[in-house]
Design a protein around this nucleic acid. Structure first.
Lengths: 149, 149
DNA sequence: AATTTATATTTGTACATACAAGTAATGTAC
DNA sequence: GTACATTACTTGTATGTACAAATATAAATT
């Protein structure tokens, strides 16, 4: 469905305004696909993002700053995200011996199991994106890369 | 800059996961361009969206349900958005005589002036999107339309 | 070594969102 | 015309975000 029809707007002032509206609208659409999926598994999208970053380095730790820089959503408050993940037993946190300002975060076995559970179900989530062919997905992604300059 | 480099991730499991990360990341990027622009003018993106919808029907009123359906971000709480806009004197609200459940919202002169002020400055905002040609903006927009199915 | 500057994380707070429940007016069925 | 359902908006609340200020450690400067 064209963005014009989605938001009942006859036309846009120019193609860039149309693209901006479309990006914001599509982001909401993506969130509506993604949020219930993760909610069912007892996670938020951001919590999952952190766990995936930690698995990438496992068994090495990752510090807060690095987590922040690797997150898709940079605005997340890493301190509070980690608090939640500790409550659930998915990560551990320790003060770094070499630099006591830094916090070493590691994923636990329980965290790895949760991620495995997510992986098992995730094809069901990504099926919702298969309205585009793989080539089109690549093309869209490249256009977004170029949009950001 | 490629999404891989933005979030320091070597590769994605497939092109659809890459696209999803890219969409969420790019949405944040867009918000970071857009938010300060509107903040400077004393509005939020959603408040501006409502005002633009009201101008489209001016001098006719628009009811809450229609505002909701035309908004780019459907999750906004229209009641509270309108409260804010009334505080600022940009809109009026009246109970609809024909159906007393409905609320008629209208943009004021002051609201129209504020929108004119936004319009005057907006080329400065949209210049940030000119890393894509117009044709590419159209192509990106069409891919997003098709992604949503 | 004391002072300043920079880095890494935490905390506070105002505001926004998601989602469920509540209220009030209208429409429908009997 | 009373009872029930539906529509349109409002309110409450828990959680999340944005942004600024605070803390604590380390590094650099004098």
């Amino acid at each position: 469905m064209r963005i014009e029809d989605e938001i009942h707007q006859k036309h846009f002032k120019d193609d860039y305004r149309r693209l901006m509206a479309n990006l914001l609208f599509t982001n909401n659409w993506v969130n509506q696909q993604v949020m219930p999926f993760f909610k069912n598994l007892g996670l938020t999208l951001q919590q999952h993002n952190v766990l995936a970053i930690l698995r990438g380095q496992h068994p090495d730790p990752v510090c807060f700053g690095d987590i922040q820089n690797r997150m898709v959503d940079r605005n997340s408050n890493v301190t509070r995200l980690i608090d939640k993940l500790i409550e659930k037993g998915y990560v551990t946190r320790d003060i770094c011996a070499a630099n006591r300002r830094m916090i070493e975060v590691r994923i636990t076995e329980k965290g790895l199991e949760k991620l495995a559970q997510v992986d098992e179900k995730s094809p069901e989530l990504f099926a919702k994106f298969h309205n585009l062919s793989r080539d089109e997905a690549v093309m869209a992604s490249n256009l977004l890369d170029r949009l950001r300059g």
